[in-house]
């Protein structure tokens, strides 16, 4: 049993050990690689002098703000499209024309309209988060047991009541899956925007470390970004299990 637990860790540990040894033996001097011990030391130092915590706050703030705006838009459009077949059909061409635009292509537009900073990053993250939310909410709403809708008709619920009391609760487990995927996308897009152009957050930090030829600090940032991504994913999976039980994960096909 203990071997089963340790097995996933074996490969990364062995790789790191081999790399550490190789770096020590060859007296590695490099702009792009650093031994794991130096990376961990750089990470500890950057955590202690608050440069990484501040960058993390900036990135997460932009990612979550964009996620909140984008998923709110995606959710409301998804519910509207899911409930009303005519609206969905009328908007089809418009949605199919806008959706394939890669979010990062909006970067220059956001840049000249809003300048550097949080706002342009939030706009781009929001744009990226709308689509998965819209499409998965739409299909979740559409697959609601039709008898539930009949019940709401029989009870003469108004449209808002029907959405609040029947549609959203019934579709919630799948909406949360969409939200989880959007959160991952939000983090990816935020870091990408920062790497490409925006001088704030973790993405800017890792670019700066690269330009300063600090390989240890650059790889420390990379490791930290990986940890943040992993932690966010784990947190949302745990929340999903807790809120909706294992049933919600059954229909979740990555």
């Amino acid at each position: 049993m203990s071997l089963d637990r340790a097995r996933p860790l074996l490969l990364p540990l062995a790789l790191m050990l081999a790399f550490e040894l190789w770096a020590r033996l060859t007296q590695l001097q490099s702009d792009s690689l650093a031994p794991p011990s130096a990376i961990l030391a750089a990470l500890a130092a950057a955590l202690a002098d608050l440069s990484i915590p501040i960058a993390t706050r900036d990135t997460l703030f932009a990612a979550f703000a964009g996620l909140a705006i984008g998923s709110a838009i995606g959710l409301s459009l998804g519910i509207a499209f899911g409930i009303s077949r005519p609206i969905d059909r009328l908007m089809e061409v418009t949605v199919e024309a806008i959706r394939p635009i890669p979010s990062i292509a909006l970067l220059p537009i956001a840049l000249i309209a809003l300048g550097f900073g949080y706002r342009m990053e939030i706009v781009i993250v929001a744009f990226a988060c709308i689509w998965p939310m819209l499409i998965m909410t739409r299909s979740a709403v559409r697959s609601i047991e039709p008898r539930l809708i009949e019940v709401s008709r029989a009870l003469r619920l108004s449209a808002t009541q029907r959405i609040a009391k029947i549609v959203i609760p019934a579709a919630l487990p799948r909406i949360f899956v969409a939200f989880r995927l959007s959160a991952g996308i939000a983090l990816i897009v935020a870091v990408t925007v920062e790497i490409a152009i925006n001088p704030i957050g973790l993405g800017a930090g890792i670019m700066l470390a690269q330009q300063a030829l600090r390989a240890d600090l650059m790889l420390a940032y990379l490791l930290w970004i990986g940890v943040i991504g992993y932690a966010l994913n784990m947190l949302l999976i745990a929340a999903q299990r807790r809120l909706f039980g294992r049933a919600a994960l059954a229909g979740d096909n990555p």
């Binding site: 790497i195 470390a209 990986g226």
Partner: peptide
């Protein structure tokens, strides 16, 4: 599985350095 949620664009600075 650990690497999957990593924002892949974070590899860009490393690739530029190399």
């Amino acid at each position: 599985e650990f690497l999957r949620p990593l924002p892949v664009s974070a590899i860009i600075p490393v690739a530029i350095a190399m």
